[in-house]
Design a protein around this nucleic acid. Structure first.
Lengths: 207, 207
DNA sequence: CCTACCGATCGGTAGG
DNA sequence: CCTACCGATCGGTAGG
């Protein structure tokens, strides 16, 4: 979030939604008057576009990191997933905002995600297909389907926040989100790789 | 959706959001005047509550079906997941509405989901633990975490609709959502069960 | 970046 | 279920 206006707008749009946030509310959060805000951003709609431009450009900053993570062979999976999770955990408002934009403007988001996600998805899928040729990744897996599913799962889990914290019984009243995210990593791992031939006692990789 | 009012309100709240839907817009969709709508539902807020009451009560109608599906041993997994997917696919607005409510009113939804989901989650988790004792389900899997993750994934994928359709490259311009949902089932299956000992050639179960 | 202001729409009421 | 109406708030402009 570069400017204070963009910062407040992002936070409010993510938490209250675009229609649920008035220009007045953003101005109040920033500490200026409404017409002053309209001076910097000519309309509420322009502010919305700036907010999601900012969000998607930050996703694009993550891409290079993932590319770098493409060096080592085996932990490429771990590093990529970690990067995606970090992106949303670093600021859960990103997940909320993306989810809201997909709901509010599906057609626009379809266009924007095509540009933003396609190169990344193609790269990750290529690695997965390589793993399939090497016999390490499950052959029946759909690389694009799997990758987007894990991404949607990360997005949804983090956007949902603590809504599920009380759904589990008496055993774990504490931070259930951590459990969900740990299980996400385990699910991603075990649904991606073929189990090892049976040499060791099927231990799990370190996280 | 019993009444026409509830039907239109559900549709509009799901697609435009609560704040993005005016009472006037709902009245127009129904074909009555605004004060007439306020006669049946004393406030917009009352209408929202009725809409999500209706949605969650329909989820509760699914519960018995899942209980019944608890007869056969092996395909219990398949039937339960199919039921959850059917619930959202039958009317994608359910997924959108739930997602929006989790974003708009996280505290209220936390309370409501505790009541609605807890018995269902406890039952499914119990079956999973049984499978773990029988050595069919992966021992390191977190039953509650896994179940909620798969549910969130179904919710998110269906709420997202066709936003990802253009993200895949040239190969499949057609219905990518189907691929995503098929891969969801495969991911759920392979992350839940231990792979078979190695007798057959690791075929996949029929769907 | 501000004060002053505008037409349109908001959720909701009065009264029948 | 309607007509008529209300105060409050909406996004945005004029003019400095």
């Amino acid at each position: 979030m570069k400017t204070p206006i963009l910062e407040s707008a992002t936070r409010l749009f993510a938490r209250m939604g675009y229609a649920g946030t008035s220009v007045q509310a953003i101005a109040d959060a920033v500490g200026i008057k409404k017409p002053s805000l309209i001076y910097w951003f000519p309309s509420k709609e322009a502010l919305r576009e700036a907010v999601i431009d900012d969000l998607l450009s930050r996703w694009n900053e993550v891409l290079p990191k993932v590319m770098v993570a493409a060096q080592g062979g085996q932990d490429r999976f771990q590093r990529t997933l970690t990067e995606v999770l970090r992106f949303f955990e670093e600021d859960p408002d990103r997940a909320r905002l993306l989810m809201r934009e997909m709901l509010d403007h599906p057609d626009e988001m379809q266009r924007r995600l095509e540009l933003t996600l396609r190169p990344w998805l193609a790269l990750v899928s290529e690695y997965i297909r390589l793993g399939q040729r090497q016999g390490r990744v499950r052959p029946e897996l759909d690389p694009e389907g799997w990758t987007l599913n894990i991404t949607v799962l990360a997005l949804g889990t983090i956007a949902a926040g603590s809504v599920f914290d009380q759904v589990v019984g008496s055993d774990g009243p504490a931070d259930f989100r951590r459990r969900q995210l740990d299980e996400l990593v385990r699910t991603a791992h075990s649904s991606l790789f073929l189990d090892r031939p049976a040499s060791a006692g099927a231990p799990q990789e370190s996280r």
